[in-house]
Every structure is written in structure tokens, then in C-alpha cells.
């Protein structure tokens, strides 16, 4: 019973953290864009513009709520809600730290430790596209529909390469459990050392799955006005934009956990820290790694131009898919030669 209360509390904390971090990611994105373009960036609301996300949130809520007359009203509302829901669902399988010991009980920093953590992750990613599709179709607008169709074909295409790059990782780790994968990297090297190509494929696919530049074709302004959220206003638009940032945060956390040691860091046992203090430092290190990935996401967005749609599809099917298959093959051969196959 006590454990259940703790898990619910952890759920609330992870949810609130995702929202809070996503809010400040919008601030970070503007600041980074400003630095890269030699500007100042938001500096009016609060010191360094730190209150800007708050002002944006209030603005989003205060804007007029518009539902197009010819649209399908229920599905129009369902679209952004579902997109937000799937964005928030992924955080439950990520191990945010090694666990805090109070008395005799160990409180793990992972909400559920299911055996099929990686599959759960892929499942949530694969249903995430429905929010965009439903929203884009229900808007009854050609630009929205085209954006939704682009989003769905893009996400399906990159899911394949993403899943295959994860298979090579599963081969070397031997488990689908994210907690175990993170714990394994305590003793040895981080997984990126064994799976450099797999990580690169996963990284590119993560950019495509979160609809970030250079793969933000579904909301390509120069061709589609606003893409799938052309007709959206007020907080429903805010949900679409906000969920993108949550997705970015979660995929950064996944990449840090799967490939970069999760909450582990080098020489962590040589620090002489005891149980709980070490766990706190580990969680801080994990968030440092996540921030680094988030910075990478933004850095790439403000550096690279957008792909053309045929280039996007060619990259997905003719480059990443064969590469990930080759990665599985090479991983298998190396494991066979080194006698790691059981």
C-alpha cells in the first residue's frame, strides 16, 4: 500500500517534471536560437526572460478558442488530447535513478519495471501518430490533411529503422527491461561503445519521430501553412506544440538511458559517496545528459535546413533501413566470434 502511494507520487512528479522541463525548453530553444543567430532572445519577462514560458502559457489559455464549423468537433478535440496523452505516457518506464533506501525498503526511481519496457516504448511511439492524424483530418482543411498524411508516413517509415536499431541493442544487452539496461552499464562501458551505428540510426529516427527539424515536414510552413495544426488555436495548438517538447525530453531521456549509461557516470564508485547521496548525484547526472541531448536537438534545428520530402523518404528507407539491418548482422557476427552467443 505504501509502495502504491509512492508510485502514484512518483507518477505525479514525473508528470510535473515533464511539463515544467518542456515549458523551460521553449525558453531554452529561443535563447539557443538567439545565440546561434547572434541576437539577445527573450529578455523582457523576468530576469533573462525566465518568466517567458509563464507568459506564453497564460497567452495560450487566454486566446480565443476556435473550432472550424465544418470540422468534426469531437475528433478535433480528441486529436491534441491524444497527442499530449501519448507524449506523457512514455516516462513511466524510464529509470530516473538507482533508487533511494529509507529504512529497509528501497524506493526505485522507476515507475514500472515491466519486462517489456522497450516494446512498451515502441508501442507508445507507434500510436503517437494518431493524435496528429485525427487532428489533421478532423480540421477539414487540405493543408491539415496533407500535414497529417506526411506525419503518418514519416513516422511509420522511421519507426522501422528505429525498431531495428533497438534490436541490435537488445542483442548485446539481452534484455528488454530499461532498468536492467541502465544497471548493466554500471559495470562495463556505456552501450554507445558497442553500438555506435545503432545509436546514430536511433538518433536520426528520434529527430524524425519528434517532427523536429530537419525532419519537420508535417508542419512545413513554406508549403503547408501550419501543417496538421493549421486550424488549431488557443491551448489546443499549445498542446500540439507542447507535446513536441515533451517528446523531445522523453526521447533525450531514452537515448541517455539506452546508449549513454543512464544514471551511471564514470568513476561513480570511487567518489566515496554512500547509497542515497550517490543516487541523488546519479539522478542529477542523468538530467545533465538529458540536457545535453536537448541542446543537440535545438542546435541541429537552428543549423540544418529542412529536407525535401523525397529526400526524407529516401533517407529512411534506402539508407537507414539497410544500415540498421547491416548493424544487426555485424552485431551478430561479432557476438558469434567473441563467443557471446548463449
Amino acid at each position: 500500500m505504501e509502495m502504491l502511494t509512492y508510485k502514484i507520487l512518483l507518477c505525479v512528479i514525473v508528470f510535473a517534471l515533464s511539463l515544467g522541463i518542456a515549458a523551460y525548453m521553449t525558453w531554452g530553444e529561443r535563447k539557443i536560437a538567439a545565440i546561434l543567430q547572434d541576437r539577445v532572445g527573450p529578455n523582457r519577462a523576468g530576469p533573462l526572460g525566465l518568466l517567458q514560458p509563464l507568459a506564453d502559457g497564460i497567452k495560450m489559455f487566454m486566446k480565443e478558442e476556435m473550432i472550424p464549423g465544418q470540422s468534426n468537433k469531437w475528433l478535433f478535440i480528441l486529436g491534441p488530447s491524444f497527442f499530449m496523452l501519448t507524449a506523457c505516457m512514455t516516462g513511466v518506464v524510464i529509470p530516473w535513478g538507482s533508487g533511494i533506501t529509507v529504512g529497509d525498503t528501497v524506493y526505485p526511481m522507476q515507475i514500472t519495471d515491466i519486462n517489456i519496457g522497450l516494446l512498451y516504448l515502441l508501442g507508445v511511439v507507434s500510436i503517437g501518430v494518431y493524435g496528429i492524424m485525427i487532428g489533421g483530418w478532423a480540421s477539414n482543411n487540405k493543408y491539415s490533411l496533407l500535414g497529417a498524411l506526411r506525419a503518418s508516413s514519416q513516422m511509420i517509415s522511421y519507426e522501422v529503422a528505429m525498431g531495428l536499431s533497438l534490436i541490435a541493442l537488445v542483442m548485446t544487452t539481452g534484455t528488454l527491461n530499461l532498468g536492467e539496461i541502465a544497471a548493466q552499464q554500471d559495470a562495463g562501458w556505456a552501450n554507445v561503445v558497442y553500438q555506435p551505428l545503432g545509436f546514430l540510426i536511433f538518433l536520426v529516427c528520434a529527430f524524425a519521430e519528434t517532427n523536429r527539424a530537419p525532419f519537420d515536414l508535417p508542419e512545413c510552413e513554406s508549403e503547408l501553412v501550419g501543417g496538421y495544426h493549421t486550424e488549431y488555436s488557443s491551448m489546443k495548438l499549445g498542446f500540439f506544440l507542447f507535446a513536441e517538447y515533451i517528446n523531445m525530453f522523453i526521447s533525450s531521456a531514452v537515448m541517455a538511458t539506452l546508449y549513454f549509461g543512464g544514471y551511471n557516470f564514470p568513476f561513480q564508485h570511487a567518489l566515496g559517496l554512500e547509497g542515497n547521496w550517490l543516487a541523488v548525484v546519479q539522478t542529477a547526472v542523468l538530467f545533465l545528459k538529458i540536457s545535453a541531448f536537448i541542446f543537440l536537438f535545438m542546435w541541429v534545428r537552428w543549423t540544418l535546413p529542412r529536407f525535401r520530402y523525397d529526400q526524407l523518404m529516401n533517407l529512411g528507407w534506402k539508407v537507414l533501413l539497410p544500415l540498421s539491418l547491416a548493424n544487426i548482422f555485424i552485431t551478430g557476427i561479432v557476438m558469434w566470434l567473441t563467443g557471446k552467443l548463449g
Binding site: I116, Y120, G123, S126, S152
Partner: peptide
């Protein structure tokens, strides 16, 4: 999990 990934996540997306 595979049921969700394959049917809900891939096949029905194509249907839709």
C-alpha cells in the same frame, strides 16, 4: 505489446 505495435501502430495507421 506486439499487438499494439503491429496492429494499432502500423496496420491501422495505414488503413486510416
Amino acid at each position: 505489446a506486439v499487438h499494439i505495435i503491429v496492429y494499432a501502430g502500423a496496420i491501422m495507421v495505414l488503413f486510416l
